[in-house]
Amino acid sequence: MNTRTQRPQRQDSTGGTAPNGDRDTAAFDRLYRDHVDRIFRFAQRLCGQADDAKDLVQNTFLNAYRGLKHFRGDAQPSTWLYTIASRACIRMRRKRKGEPERQLSLDEFIPTSEGEFRLQIPAEGLTPEEALANKELRGALQQAIRKLPEKYRLVLVLRDMEDMPAKEVGAIMGLNERAVKSRLHRARLFVRKELSAREFGQPAGAAGPATPSRRLIPARPRD
C-alpha cells in the first residue's frame, strides 16, 4: 500500500465551492460509480449469495463514506475498498458465528494412498467455461469456497478469482507474501479435495459406500 495516489475527494469537480456535505457526497458518488461493480463481484464470490453480497457492499461503502475524509491516498482506491470489504466480511462472519476459525493443516490434504492421489475433478476434458455451465459443478465449487475458513477464502478469492498479485493480497490482508502463498496453497487443496470427492448429482457423503477412487481423503493429525 505504498503507492500514493490522489484522494477520490480531491478529484471531485465540485470541490472548493460546494458545502462539505455535498462535496462528500460527490466524492462518494464518484467512488461508488467507479467501484461498485467490482466490489459487488468480490462480495458475491466471498458470500455466494446475492443478498449477503449486497449487505457486504452496503457495509463497505458506508464505511468508505465515513472514512473518505481520512483516506490519504496511500493506496489505490480499489485496494482501499477491498481492504474495507475484507474486514467487513470478517466482522460480519464473527457476528454470525461467534466461534474461532479453523486452521487448515497441510497434512490433512496430503494423500495417504494411491487412490487418494488419483482423485480427479469431475468434468475433466471440458474447458473451464464448459464445465462451469454445469449447474451442479458450479454449485459444488461455490459451496466448497463457502466452506473455506474466512482467512483462507479471502486469499483464494483475491488471488485466484480477482486475479490480484500476492503482494497486493498481502497489503489488503496485512500479511507478508509468504503467508499469503501458504494460505493460498491450503485453500486450493481444500477446494480440490471438496470437488474431487463429489460426483455430479451426488453430494459428498451421500453416494453410498465409498469407492477407493471417490472417497473423501481422511484428515490426518496436525504436526
Binding site: 461493480d37 452496503q58 458450479r138
Partner: peptide, 30 residues
C-alpha cells in the same frame, strides 16, 4: 486436478448488479 481447481476458480462468473439495485443501494448507504 489442482491446476483444474485453480482454472475453475478463475472462470467463475457472477451476475452484475442491475441499475435499479445500484441506485437503491446508494440511497440506503447515504
Amino acid at each position: 486436478s489442482l491446476r483444474r481447481t485453480v482454472d475453475l476458480c478463475r472462470h467463475v462468473d457472477t451476475p452484475p448488479l442491475t441499475s435499479t439495485a445500484k441506485a437503491r443501494l446508494r440511497s440506503q448507504i447515504l
